[in-house]
Amino acid sequence: MAAISKLCFSTRCDGALISTTTKITKGNNDMFKNPVSRRKFLKDAASATAIGTLGSLVANRAYAADTITATEWGGSYIDQIKLIAAKQSDVKINWQLYSGGAALILPKIKATWPNPGIDLVAGWDLSLQAIVREGWAEPVTAEKVPNLADIPKKLLIKDGAGNVINIPRTISSIFWYYREDNAPFEITKIDDLLDPRLAGKVCFPAPNNNSNLQMVGLALHKGGDERNMEPAWDFVKELARSGNIGRVATSDSDITSSISSGETCISFMGGSGAIEIGRAFKIKYLTKMDPESGFRTFLYQEGWCVLKGEHADAAFRFANFAINAENNEEFNRGIFGIPVNLKAKTSDEVRPMVFNNEEMDRYIYIPDWAYVSEQADAWMKRWEQEVVPLL
């Protein structure tokens, strides 16, 4: 069996839920702390060796069918996870979709705890860490989730007592990209966003989307970082005054609509959305640009937490089924992501997001998630006060 040493990425408050018939795309609003540094464990996970043999499909039939309530993102996410769920009959699932980023559900859980009416929560680094702090998660064990044995240990999040609380399913990234057929010139550096030829052609996410990583990247280019954002604010205000921002996006669905319609040609979003757009249009992924260009790629993971409650065992059974090699591969192929199961294969379609170890060091930036999450309210308020009036 051939060893694979590369990594590919996909593409990520009042938590109102919408019906499962509503189709939305994944957003990344995040307003909660993450006390754990992610750079080392994600880099280690990135270089893990993948075994190409698929595991067998397993569904535990020893239980009567149970019903759980699970949250999920819309678009390809809900489509693919429903396909996985249809392959088993052990657990019935009432799907409730996010009306925004995953963190938006957390205030709803807090307000209704210990009876939130939710059993399985989909999330990513920041929202999963918030669940850890609140003590809502049922500890994950090898007995409850046997397929966790095929997941890199570095992806596991632990609470203060050392209990694993997450069930990983995808490694993802966020980056800049543009439609080559709709751009007036080849875009090679972040300062090109100020070029008059891009008048009205920039789709810029507001700080409540992507945890404001778009501005963290600007800060890095201008000599700052997530703790020194002044250079980014100066750049964004100049960009707003230029007239080049044709759309301010508050969700990935805004970006998808704007780029697909031709209203704008360049934006910053999760890899899954960018690759999906790339099926219909000629897309230039700005994922491996010289750091001097200002285009940076950010890395994170997505997965589940099982909340404490009477349906926890059923939630664990479904999650375990969903992350076996075959199902994890199928799910990530459908959302354009990297599977976390070491026995799963990666789709060729996400090759633009493949990084080897050297490229990880050169192109990937993993911020201080705890600090970023603490700034969410302040950044959004400053955006509204200082940038919106200039648009």
Rank of each mutant, 00 (worst) to 15 (best):
S37R: 11
Y77V: 08
K33W: 06
D225E: 04
Y285T: 08
E72Y: 03
P231I: 02
K237Q: 15
I78R: 06
I93W: 06
A322C: 08
S89N: 14
G135P: 09
G52R: 10
K189S: 13
D254N: 15
W304M: 10
L97R: 12
F295E: 06
T297A: 14
D181Y: 05
D125A: 12
K158F: 03
I84P: 04
E72N: 11
A142Q: 06
Q214G: 14
A325F: 04
W95H: 05
N357M: 06
A137R: 10
A240D: 01
A86N: 13
S251Q: 10
F235A: 10
N210M: 14
V202T: 06
N228P: 00
T346K: 07
G217D: 05
R317C: 01
N28A: 15
G270R: 02
K153Q: 15
E230G: 02
A206H: 02
H221Q: 12
L156M: 14
S251G: 11
T69P: 06
V58L: 13
W113H: 08
S127K: 05
Q301I: 13
D361K: 13
K154C: 03
W233N: 06
L156T: 08
Y300Q: 07
K82Q: 15
N147L: 01
K189W: 00
I105L: 15
G162M: 09
F355P: 04
I51L: 12
E226L: 02
E72R: 01
I105N: 11
S5G: 08
P139H: 10
P339I: 11
T69V: 15
E310F: 00
P207C: 07
I283V: 15
D252T: 15
P367T: 10
T250G: 13
I187K: 05
E238N: 14
G334H: 07
F316I: 02
R169Q: 12
L194I: 04
M353E: 14
Q375R: 09
L286Y: 01
A65W: 01
Y365S: 11
T22R: 11
L390Q: 02
L156V: 10
K144Q: 11
P116G: 03
N209R: 07
K87M: 10
I187P: 04
D79M: 09
T49Y: 07
K26R: 11
P139V: 09
L220V: 11
I81L: 08
N357L: 07
K108L: 12
I187T: 04
T71I: 02
A314Y: 07
L286R: 06
A102E: 14
N94G: 05
D377V: 12
P196L: 12
M289N: 13
Y178Q: 10
P207M: 02
S173R: 00
S253K: 14
T297D: 09
S173T: 12
P107L: 09
Y98K: 02
M229R: 10
P231W: 02
W379L: 13
Y371I: 01
T287F: 00
